[in-house]
Write a protein that binds this DNA or RNA. Sequence first.
DNA 1: GAGTTTTGATGTCTGCACACATCGGTGTCA
DNA 2: TGACACCGATGTGTGCAGACATCAAAACTC
Lengths: 245, 245
Amino acid sequence: MLTTMSTSLHHRAIEHLGTSIVGGSLPAGHVVLAEQLEDELKVSRSVVREAVRVLQSLGLVETIKRVGIRVLPADRWNPFDPLVIRWRLAGDARGAQLRSLAELRSAVEPIAAELAALNAPEALRRELLEVSDAMRAAGEAGDLPLFLNLDIRFHSLLLTGSGNEMFANLVGQVAETLTGRTVLGLMPDHPSEAALRWHREVAEAIAAADSVGAREAADRIMRHSLAELEPNWRDQPRVFLQPHH
Amino acid sequence: MLTTMSTSLHHRAIEHLGTSIVGGSLPAGHVVLAEQLEDELKVSRSVVREAVRVLQSLGLVETIKRVGIRVLPADRWNPFDPLVIRWRLAGDARGAQLRSLAELRSAVEPIAAELAALNAPEALRRELLEVSDAMRAAGEAGDLPLFLNLDIRFHSLLLTGSGNEMFANLVGQVAETLTGRTVLGLMPDHPSEAALRWHREVAEAIAAADSVGAREAADRIMRHSLAELEPNWRDQPRVFLQPHH
DNA sequence: GAGTTTTGATGTCTGCACACATCGGTGTCA
DNA sequence: TGACACCGATGTGTGCAGACATCAAAACTC
């Protein structure tokens, strides 16, 4: 009916509803009707229904017969879903989301380094050493874009080298936080000597199958990068719920 | 048309497809047709289409015009989605899934303890102390079911007390692993003195806002519980992928 | 107030039109 | 004859419209 568009109506509907809910313009408890969404988005019932089903699986809404589609409170959302994370990063909750991701990284990466030291394939250990060397070169040359790419590569190798698929799945989120840090100009012109050394230490420890050393070095990186977090991120209000289980 | 059933057709379709894919009877790369699913499940197109949309959002399938519905390889699945985790726990990958969850716990809980020591509300700190006392009582009395409940409560408080919604979201998975450990008879009749002491230490450190102590004590619990992991869990093959980023 | 009926929303089914990647046939050219 | 470009047929997901089924809230009756 309309001219060709890049994304499907289905994706557009998901995006519209998702950003509205996560962005806050559709508060928890609010009820929308499927027909209302059809009119609003000018799409058919199937598109709306399929989108709602996806959002339901993400915990953003629930459907109740005779009532409508009810928006669920944030503690019902799946905080690990890439869509939810993206929507939160795009909205007011950006700071809180970045802090959560930073805390998750600081928990996971040291253990990932430890596991990589125990399990990673030989080629991956070698590449880790190469990348850490290249990071030093790029850092001393002041080539921040290249450094960012290598940094992402380094942490990707670390996470995949753990052999834990959940850790490996965090690669995208880590890349996002590293990129965000650089894009926002939070990185010094030249990475600190300490950071360069610790990355190298992680690589060497993994190459040497020194799990304790790998973990400790990775832990130093995480403490350091948490400490230099944008204060705004740290100051985001935390949420404490009773486990409703 | 059919007699009434407890779960909706939609959920049944998701369950059928999901378990088939995660369980391995529909291998990666395999292509199924929507019509074929209608016949197989005896449901209409809308039900199939809505279910496929959900599976698509989980990364289990992709739809290609003129081709059909293609099953995606396991590394495209969202390993944090509760459905995926449940299906993996129910199938051959149970061991690998339990190991992944155990590793995630061992990474997250020490940091959660540290954050709880810094941020948790007063009431939560107090309850943590009470629960750790009750755990000792139940443990020494040999009341394993009660101990399990208290153990779950303890770790739930820890995770929610961190104020990190991603950590808090792991409560269900932690409960699953703790329950599994007990149900499978992997727990001694009386919890070890060390475990009881460490739980108490975590609670005391959090009550005293001693973040370092909380982290270290929680780390000891995790190391201990990893060490007594069912050997089968540890022996599960790991997967190492190149980050396709 | 308890039981019944009405109502209005989602759940499910079906037929249709369209978009578009793939495949095979046809024609052209060397 | 063989290689290549073109082009239309085919099949399948995408989107639409309308119908009926189901079920729970709300209104109504007694």
